[in-house]
Structures are given as structure tokens and as C-alpha cells.
Design a protein around this nucleic acid. Structure first.
Lengths: 198, 198
DNA sequence: CGCTACATGTAAGGTGTTACATGATTCC
DNA sequence: GGAATCATGTAACACCTTACATGTAGCG
């Protein structure tokens, strides 16, 4: 899947749930899919233009004075199913927090503790916002048919957040148990303990 | 952090644990950091060249006939600590599995089930390889000082994998409970239930 | 002696983000 | 009338990956 297709999949998917303007698609992707997907501005509009030219989406006649929303055509829905059926391709992971902890000896135990506390705080906030998301999902009658599937992704976020909290707490305890912190980064100045320059 | 710095951080970090050739750095990043970080071939060599020019790393005289390994200089270690101390910048998430489940109504319950089973299988494999990694870590005397920090990242992987397994199993059960699968994607041909073309 | 793994690099091409540019509509 | 938000795009640039190019060392 040539990866522009990934954007097409996300955009078609969003429109399959509810007709929207490009602007709204971006907002939805940011707010609703935000924790596991991202598309930037500069990708969404070109994607919409392409999809419209291919007859996969069309503008609905707008009732209000607001801009006309896009909706997938029958061919568009078929294309969406085709894209969804392809194997998900693994994305390149880049977790800055774990990288820093891996090199924690250089970073120092104190800074590691701060990273862990930050992780825990963020996961707790995430948990809260997922609770809200679940309530909104239950309240929205328009989403009735999609809700069971959306629910799975909310649940994934919760499991992941709870795991992060448990891990952070365990790790903080483990750091406390570290004897005499044999840190390379001493509180004073950068005195190197290991090999030095030639 | 201009993001080329991210590569510098990973490379300096790897060399801080043990002097290595560029080739080995790549291998280490792929195998050891692979589950939470990635650097491609085309980034590592230019990064090494730059770091050497800046005097942050140097080639150690090689004992064997093998190629000479790089090691960080004192300035290099200082630079590493500086980089590590910066805020981790959030990476753009792209979880293809969750995106597909979100649009599960279009994909169909059966295919969703397959995705969940795949997720569970992968997480179980991940768990196994983390067990191996932990044993190797414990066995390697050279890593003694870094081990407590590396251990945190192994633990993170385990928490995450166990959460994925629990989530997948719960979700499979939830899908089984779904009444009469009101799928849009019918087993026969693509009969659209919703709006169609103009 | 040939295959595999080690080792180093570059350049083309694709991807993705950001900043800029522009204008309509709505609300206060 | 002015600010905020809705709405649509583009173009420059940063970023990364991939494929190519090249050569050495060790092993069977």
C-alpha cells in the first residue's frame, strides 16, 4: 500500500461514519483518532481532491449557508473496504521517553524519575478523556452502528494507559531501590568516569 | 530539537554503552531498541561522520583486523547528556490496526476478529523475546551499570504486551457478543446499505 | 574459491509538515 | 465592525527510506 493510500483510508473512513467538510475531517482525525492516528493538513486536502476526481467521494448539496460536506459514493465505500482489508503496515516506532530511560545511566536517576512521573500523569489524563469519549459515544445516536467498533479502540486506549500507569509506578519504586545511584552524570560538573579523549 | 539531534542522541547513546562500528550501531538499534526506536541505514552513517567531525566521537585503535569501533569522547558524553535532558518530543502515531478496527463496521466483524488474533499472537511473541532479552541482560557483565535502566524498558514492553493480550481477548469476546452482525460488508457482493451515488 | 557477513557510504525519490495565502461566515 | 472560527488550498522544505555501489574478512 503506497502510503498515500493510508491517508485515503483514513479520510474515506471518516466520511463513511458521517459526511463532513475537509476542515471537519481534519478536526475529527485530530480529536477522535488522535491517540492512534495522525494526518496533517497538507495531506487531507490533496487527498480529498484526488478522491473526488476518482469519483470516490462527492459533495452533498448543503442545506445551510455552511460549506458543502463530502460523502463517499458507492464506489468510495467499496474502495474503503478494499483498503481496510489490506495488512496494516507497521509504523516506525519513536518513543523518546523509553530511549531516554534506556540511556538512563547517562541521564541520571533523578531525571528518569521525572520522565516516569510525567508518563504516569499523562496516562491518567488520557484515562479521563477516554471516559468522556465513551460517554459521548453512548450518547450519539448517529454512531449507533459504528459504536461497538469504536468502543474497541477506546478500550485499547484504556488498557494501554493503565499499563503505562502500572509500569511507571513499578519503575519509580525500582529506581528508589537503586543503591547509591552510581550515576555518570554527577550533580556538580561533567566529570567523566569512563574513557576520555585521546 | 531539530530531529537530526534525535539520531545523534541514539547513536551517542549506543556508543556510550559500548564502542562499536557503524554497522554494529545499526544492528544494536534494530535488535535492542527495535521495539521503541528506529534509525535507518541512511541516517546512521552521516550522523557518525558529523559526530566525528565535531569531535564528539572518535575511532578507537582496533586490536583485531576488524574495523575500528567508535567511542564517544568526553565532549560527546557531555553532548549526550544535554540531548537526553531535553523534553521527549511526541511522535506522530500511526496504528493501522486500531484505525481498521475503528472503521470495523465497514471492514466486517470477521476481519476484525482476525486483526485481534494477530495482535494477540504478536504480543505473545513479544513477551517471549523480552524474557530472552532479560536473561541476556542479566548475563552480560559489561552492562552491569546500564542494566537497571535497560530493565525499565524491558518492563515497559512487558506491560504493554500483556495489556495488548488482555485487550485482544476482551475484544474478541465483545465481538462474539455482537448481535446478528449488522455489517455493511455483506459476505456476498458489495451491496451498500447506506447512501449511494448521485 | 565462493558465499556470507561485515563495513561504509551516496543519491534519488517519496513522504509528511509547516508556513503562508486567502476569503467567508458567525457571533459579540 | 472586529475577532474567532470555518474553510480551502499550495509550495517550500525537512525528513527518511531505499536502492545502488563498493570493498574486505572469515569460513567452509
Amino acid at each position: 500500500m503506497p502510503s498515500a493510500d493510508q491517508t485515503h483510508m483514513a479520510v474515506l473512513g471518516a466520511l463513511s461514519i458521517m459526511p463532513m467538510t475537509g476542515y471537519a475531517v481534519r478536526e475529527q482525525i485530530r480529536s477522535t483518532l488522535g491517540s492512534f492516528w495522525s494526518e496533517s493538513f497538507g495531506q487531507i486536502y490533496p487527498a480529498l481532491a484526488q478522491l473526488e476526481k476518482q469519483g470516490l467521494i462527492e459533495r452533498l448539496p448543503s442545506q445551510t449557508s455552511r460549506s458543502a460536506p463530502f460523502a463517499p459514493t458507492a464506489a468510495g465505500l467499496a474502495r474503503l473496504r478494499e483498503l481496510l482489508a489490506e495488512e496494516p503496515q507497521p509504523s516506525r516506532p519513536r518513543n523518546g521517553t523509553l530511549l531516554r530511560l534506556f540511556f538512563g545511566r547517562q541521564l541520571g536517576a533523578e531525571a528518569c524519575r521525572a520522565l516516569l512521573e510525567q508518563t504516569r500523569t499523562q496516562a491518567e489524563a488520557q484515562l479521563q478523556s477516554l471516559l468522556v469519549a465513551r460517554e459521548e459515544l453512548a450518547a450519539d445516536a448517529l454512531l449507533r452502528d459504528d459504536a461497538p467498533y469504536i468502543e474497541l479502540t477506546i478500550s485499547a486506549g484504556e488498557h494501554s494507559a493503565r499499563a503505562a500507569i502500572a509500569w511507571a509506578e513499578e519503575s519509580l519504586a525500582a529506581l528508589d531501590a537503586l543503591p547509591a545511584t552510581p550515576t555518570t552524570a554527577t550533580p556538580t560538573t561533567a566529570t567523566t568516569t569512563t574513557r576520555s579523549t585521546s
